[in-house]
Design a protein around this nucleic acid. Structure first.
Length: 314
DNA sequence: GGTGAGAATACGCTTCGGCT
DNA sequence: AGCCGAAGCGTATTCTCACC
């Protein structure tokens, strides 16, 4: 079974991706990276996945040593190789730990209330009234609810329950759906935009809540460019060592809620599951991740925990 | 059973070139 | 000018498994 030819390797790749997709995995990385890996093997005239070839391909320039790209490529190859072992026994599966991914922690930017006001003000001052309404409502929604950008952009008009003031987030990260309750002021802002939206020139069949000037659903890349302009123009984060990002609005939301609970003397551990559900996390362990975002919050947490710590000195 | 570490996976950030 | 979409890379969240 050592006579696999390049063509069959490519066919196996197609079948592998198809199978994983049917099992519910997107595997966008593998779909993008592995065809190049197969091409690499074909050019070498190799028809079997080996650890040596995998290492050589993963460490190809221009990505520098230590880049997150090397372990990312290796992860894709490992998955494919596991699948291939059932087809070609000569396949070598790169072991776990070969090109391990190094976790990096980059402190997130936490927006002050003034920062958020400046961002929303700058968005509302965009020259086109439609864009001003779209982006001030979008960034306002992100800041007020901690929703992910993708979740906001995939919202349809019908996903908003105006009677109960709730937004339905459908099929979000890892296929989960949830309801996000809105404050009165947020619901009012969304209703104002919904009313304006009726005057926008939408392409037929477009149900998206947020609409671009072309009448279509707003895409992430456009949001990024607008955000970058607004950030530069308003001077947000100019003194910060880390650049403010859109997703930091979610960090800021979570940290603000937690801080408020600590200040109010709430039983944070007991209430945390509610925040986890609100943010769309599977369990509170993911939410604890946000604790490391704000030193101020850690200090408060430590202060609260101190009386319960065992006394080690006599 | 609970927990921590690291792998696996999906969403986010950024750039770029092309289109309208 | 604004939007679109692909590509490469970064980060957030879940899964898995060894260890206690």
């Amino acid at each position: 079974m050592t006579t696999e030819n390049p063509t069959s390797l490519r066919i196996h790749l197609t079948q592998y991706l198809l199978l994983r997709n049917r099992l519910g995995h997107n595997l966008a990385d593998a779909a993008r990276l592995l065809p190049r890996y197969v091409t690499y093997l074909e050019e070498l005239g190799h028809s079997t996945v080996t650890i040596a070839d995998a290492l050589a391909w993963c460490q190809q320039p221009p990505s520098p040593p230590g880049s997150s790209v090397w372990p990312r490529r290796m992860g894709a190859v490992r998955g494919f190789a596991r699948y291939l072992t059932g087809i070609d026994p000569a396949t070598e599966v790169p072991p776990i730990g070969l090109l391990p991914s190094r976790r990096r922690w980059r402190p997130p930017f936490i927006y002050s209330p003034d920062d958020i006001a400046a961002l929303l003000g700058a968005a509302a001052a965009l020259s086109s009234p439609q864009r001003a309404a779209t982006y001030s409502t979008l960034f306002g929604l992100l800041a007020a609810t901690g929703m992910r950008v993708r979740e906001a952009l995939t919202l349809d008009s019908s996903d908003i329950d105006w009677d109960d003031g709730v937004v339905l987030v459908r099929e979000s990260k890892f296929g989960k759906s949830r309801n996000v309750p809105l404050s009165d002021s947020t619901a009012e802002a969304l209703a104002r935009y919904a009313s304006l939206r009726e005057s926008f020139d939408c392409t037929p069949g477009n149900e998206s809540y947020f609409v671009s000037l072309t009448g279509r659903r707003v895409i992430y890349e456009s949001v990024f460019e607008v955000f970058a302009d607004l950030r530069r123009g308003s001077g947000i984060g100019r003194q910060s060592t880390v650049a403010p990002r859109i997703h930091n609005l979610r960090h800021t939301f979570a940290v603000t809620v937690l801080l408020q609970w600590y200040r109010d003397g709430e039983d944070v551990a007991a209430r945390l599951p509610r925040l986890s559900t609100y943010l769309g996390h599977r369990d509170p362990r993911s939410t604890y991740w946000y604790l490391s975002a704000a030193p101020q919050l850690l200090a408060l947490a430590a202060e609260r925990l101190e009386p319960t710590l065992p006394q080690v000195n006599s």
